[in-house]
Simulated scan of single mutants.
Amino acid sequence: MKFYKRISTILIAFLILALVSGCTNNTSNEDVLVMGFVPMRDGDALIESVKPLEELLSQELGIKVKAFTATNYVGVVEGLGSGQVDFGFIPPFAYVLANSENKAQVILTALNSSGKSNYRSQFLVSSDDNSISSLEDLQGKKVAFVDFSSTSGYLFPGAHLAGLGLELDNDIEVIIAGGHDKALQLLLNGDVDAATTFVDARDRYASDFPGAMEKTRVLGYTDYIPNITVTTRGTMESELQGRIQAALLNIAESEEGAEMLKELFNMYGFVKASDSDYDIIRETARLMNVNLKEQD
């Protein structure tokens, strides 16, 4: 009899533990909301810098918000899929992957310093080079790209050229520079015929490359690239999605919140977003035969 009582006690204990664990993992209780980030700068510094946003969001929502920083965006995507992350700040390619794999939903897109929710890549050539007057003229030329995983420095420029009928593997000599500034430097040095960078890298690196504006000219632009997203897990209730969306918009409109977003994350506000805004990402991935899981 004592043996059966002991077994019953153990079973009851396990049942209680299972119920408690289930409640802990059930994000619908809303005891804590986990906010995922991909490192935009030094990882340790980012973990510390997220704290002001944690506090402001907790106040706005009336729910404790806790930050989670992954080593790369795949960690946040996986967290959204498993329910361990409730919402996250992730790049557009990461959003498309999260939406495809676990129905994650975009609710906001960040604004840049120009107040826009998107940006473009540019193709630069030397101002003195009269042999290149159109993007089609890049056939047979040396072109500096930033990195194979760079959205604005390779994927979008590459897809744009592919859309014009140019095959990167056969029609262009691809040079990987390792950075937007390095691609610009290769062009200024005369090592390549053209370079791809974000618009306008020449302003960003004006102190490093004085006269770059005069020495180079824009040959063309890519399609617009959506900025970083705020994405929620696919199982999140629409009411909570709306509350998070409204809270971030309110923070961005406040003086304290706007300054924090600008200083810490280089974000200048948010605009409401929908899934269709990211169809251009899907098309680019298709044109470039991109495995989204392998993008950083």
Score class of each variant (00 low, 15 high):
residue 153 G to E: 09
residue 45 A to Y: 12
residue 124 L to N: 01
residue 33 L to W: 00
residue 96 V to M: 00
residue 48 E to Y: 07
residue 122 Q to R: 05
residue 151 T to V: 15
residue 172 I to L: 14
residue 133 S to D: 11
residue 88 G to D: 00
residue 278 Y to C: 07
residue 120 R to H: 04
residue 127 S to P: 03
residue 137 D to I: 07
residue 276 S to T: 14
residue 203 D to S: 13
residue 118 N to L: 04
residue 223 D to M: 12
residue 148 F to I: 10
residue 135 L to N: 01
residue 38 V to Q: 09
residue 289 N to R: 08
residue 89 F to M: 13
residue 202 R to S: 07
residue 62 G to F: 05
residue 86 D to C: 09
residue 273 A to Q: 09
residue 93 F to L: 11
residue 82 S to P: 04
residue 113 S to M: 11
residue 166 L to G: 06
residue 236 M to W: 08
residue 209 F to A: 08
residue 240 L to V: 12
residue 268 Y to I: 09
residue 162 A to N: 05
residue 118 N to I: 04
residue 239 E to Q: 13
residue 71 T to W: 00
residue 222 T to D: 07
residue 42 D to I: 06
residue 142 K to H: 09
residue 102 N to R: 09
residue 92 P to N: 14
residue 211 G to C: 01
residue 226 P to V: 08
residue 178 G to I: 08
residue 228 I to E: 08
residue 230 V to W: 00
residue 199 V to Y: 08
residue 35 M to L: 14
residue 77 V to L: 06
residue 115 G to C: 09
residue 180 H to E: 14
residue 95 Y to L: 10
residue 103 K to T: 08
residue 240 L to H: 06
residue 116 K to C: 03
residue 209 F to G: 07
residue 5 K to H: 12
residue 39 P to I: 11
residue 94 A to V: 07
residue 181 D to W: 05
residue 82 S to W: 01
residue 233 R to Q: 14
residue 187 L to Y: 00
residue 71 T to M: 08
residue 55 E to P: 01
residue 202 R to Q: 12
residue 245 Q to I: 06
residue 124 L to F: 03
residue 186 L to H: 06
residue 238 S to M: 09
residue 219 L to T: 03
residue 117 S to D: 13
residue 250 N to T: 13
residue 51 K to L: 11
residue 170 N to F: 04
residue 296 D to V: 12
residue 291 N to I: 02
residue 107 I to C: 02
residue 270 F to N: 05
residue 194 A to E: 04
residue 267 M to N: 03
residue 12 I to R: 02
residue 47 I to F: 00
residue 136 E to K: 09
residue 88 G to Y: 00
residue 206 A to P: 10
residue 114 S to F: 10
residue 57 L to V: 02
residue 82 S to Y: 07
residue 13 A to I: 15
residue 170 N to Q: 13
residue 145 F to T: 01
residue 231 T to C: 06
residue 56 L to T: 07
residue 189 N to Y: 08
residue 78 E to Y: 01
residue 147 D to H: 15
residue 197 T to I: 11
residue 95 Y to A: 04
residue 75 G to E: 13
residue 232 T to M: 05
residue 88 G to N: 01
residue 156 F to K: 04
